[in-house]
Design a binder for these strands. Structure first.
Length: 178
DNA sequence: GCCTATCGTGATG
DNA sequence: CATCACGATAGGC
């Protein structure tokens, strides 16, 4: 992965949408992104914010912000520059020996989780088609379902959906092939 | 290119 | 609960 290689990811499974999401926009070397995080203590006994949203800012901040609202209609978004910046540093500030653990909070069905897990198992640089993924999960015919599960991935690059190539070669990555 | 088999979600009532 | 429409698909024609 292209963020700090030593960065550890810890998954936290949510059972319901968070009431409060802290967010802010950050500039990474790969472009502007929005980061959303769960309020501390509501989910993580270790008192850390957990990332639940990580989108690229495609066009402008407002559009991306609205995408978050749409995805989490029941959550209140609160801007928290300091805490989000802290998380961004953990993720992208990979110059130093960075062994920080970045908690990721995800909400999904079992099927979705297994899809994301299968994705995470892909080795660095390895690519895969949706049908190969489906097959690996023992559901060779659920190709379409796998695709829509992948599409609902909330954390962009952390789950390596960019390693998927469609069978005919014409990848349609949500944020563009680049 | 168009047609269709396929299946998990989310919305709707 | 039942039904319906909807995909970042794949394969056949």
């Amino acid at each position: 992965m292209w963020f700090a290689p030593s960065t550890q990811i810890r998954l936290i499974l949510l059972e319901k949408p968070p009431e409060i999401i802290l967010f802010d926009f950050v500039n990474t070397k790969f472009g502007k992104m929005i980061i959303g995080a769960i309020n501390p203590l509501t989910v993580d006994p270790r008192d850390q914010e957990a990332i639940c949203v990580l989108y690229f800012v495609d066009k402008n901040e407002e559009i991306t912000y609205n995408e978050v609202i749409k995805r989490w209609p029941k959550s209140v978004l609160i801007k928290d520059k300091a805490k989000i910046q802290l998380l961004a540093d953990k993720l992208f500030g990979g110059n130093k020996e960075n062994s920080e653990v970045v908690p990721i909070a995800i909400l999904g069905t079992e099927f979705q989780l297994s899809v994301w897990k299968a994705l995470a198992d892909l080795k660095r640089g390895e690519t895969c088609t949706y049908s190969q993924l489906a097959e690996r999960m023992g559901r060779p015919k659920a190709v379409r379902a796998v695709a829509s599960a992948v599409a609902k991935n909330e954390v962009a690059v952390l789950i390596p959906c960019h390693r998927i190539v469609s069978q005919n070669g014409a990848t349609k990555y949500h944020w563009g092939a680049a």
